[in-house]
């Protein structure tokens, strides 16, 4: 009994005491670290929530005045009395430019990715890969300037007159490719957007194509498939969800791109059937009009911003969902 007491006394006096102190010091560090990281994480949510709330507050007068009609009104007349403001023009421009951009960028982007992963000789892989990364790194204003000074005039004298003349008597197409050729048009903006989002599609596609187990491809080649058959029947089906996710990320960028588009779209609120006509997008409208706006006009521009926010949010959410599904599939 006495010996036991002695031992526990010693233990209480020396060992556990030091250990507890040492441990609590660690614990304090851990708790601090935990809270610092937690606060950083929460601050992101707070900022996001703050942005949404201030957008809603700013857009409230426009929402109250125009209601749902805002989405369906074609007219944009901030100087009319009372002002008539409708988002149909910018929404139309945003969707059309993004759609055409994806139409061009998806086949080209996937083509580059397939070439890089399946066909490219080893020595060419790095230069092409680096070129794609550089394309992604060019600031958007540079694309805008290039589109304005080089691409716009080039298209207006070559591609546009060519399309207008061959489609002149074909129904539907003659409306889509109607003249006159213009330096600043929906089509030019779409083409610049396509070049801008191309690296996104290629980079993600290359990554997901690498997840295809070599044994599947080797088996396909083993039974005599051509490269085209391997890509079509093995690589693409295996990675479909991931590729779509990458495309959605690119779409998110195309929808929100501002500076390059403002340069070359022509900032006009009309809705024209011709893709060679000038138009505007949500972000271009905000960029060119916000500075001098006030009252209902400003509120409507903020409401446009809110619409873009919601649109981009859904597109990105869909992209994340698809990439997540791919990851679980790859994990199996």
């Amino acid at each position: 009994m006495a010996v036991q007491t002695e031992v526990s006394d010693i233990a209480a006096a020396a060992g556990p005491y030091d250990r507890a102190r040492a441990l609590s010091a660690f614990k304090l560090g851990d708790v601090t670290f935990y809270w610092i990281t937690r606060l950083s994480a929460i601050s992101v949510l707070l900022i996001l929530g703050g942005i949404i709330i201030s957008l809603i507050i700013g857009a409230w007068p426009a929402m109250k005045t125009y209601g749902f009609d805002f989405l369906l009104t074609k007219r944009w007349a901030p100087s009319a009395d009372p002002p008539v403001l409708g988002a149909l023009g910018p929404i139309y421009g945003t969707l059309v430019t993004s759609f055409i951009a994806m139409l061009i960028a998806i086949p080209v982007g996937l083509g580059v990715a397939i070439f890089l992963t399946e066909l490219c000789p080893q020595w060419l892989r790095r230069p092409i890969g680096i070129a794609i990364e550089l394309l992604a790194g060019i600031p958007s204003i540079i694309y805008g300037m290039w589109g304005f000074f080089v691409l716009g005039p080039f298209l207006a004298y070559t591609f546009q007159p060519f399309m207008i003349s061959i489609c002149a008597n074909i129904p539907v197409l003659q409306d889509i490719f109607a003249g006159p050729p213009s330096y600043l048009s929906l089509f030019n903006a779409s083409l610049i957007l396509a070049i801008m989002v191309l690296p996104f599609i290629t980079a993600i596609s290359v990554d997901v194509f690498k997840t295809v187990p070599p044994v599947l491809k080797e088996a396909a080649y083993g039974v005599g498939c051509t490269t085209w058959e391997v890509v079509r029947s093995v690589v693409i089906p295996y990675t479909r969800v991931g590729v779509i996710g990458g495309v959605m990320l690119a779409l998110g960028r195309a929808l929100g791109e501002t500076m390059a588009v403002t340069f070359i779209i022509g900032n006009s609120f009309r809705i024209s059937s011709s893709i060679f006509a000038p138009g505007t997008t949500i972000s271009a409208a905000i960029a060119s009009e916000f500075q001098e706006s006030d009252g209902l006009h400003q509120s409507s521009l903020i409401l446009l911003g809110l619409l873009l926010f919601v649109l981009t949010f859904f597109v990105l959410a869909a992209a994340r969902l698809m990439l997540m599904r791919l990851e679980t599939k790859a994990g199996k």
Partner: peptide
């Protein structure tokens, strides 16, 4: 159309500022 600091333009492309219009004209 009427007159104001911004009006509902029936035709044309919009450029930002006097310098934007100058740039567009010398370019187009």
């Amino acid at each position: 159309i009427g007159f104001n600091t911004a009006v509902e333009w029936p035709v044309g492309v919009g450029a930002k500022g006097n310098e934007g219009v100058s740039g567009n004209i010398s370019q187009t």
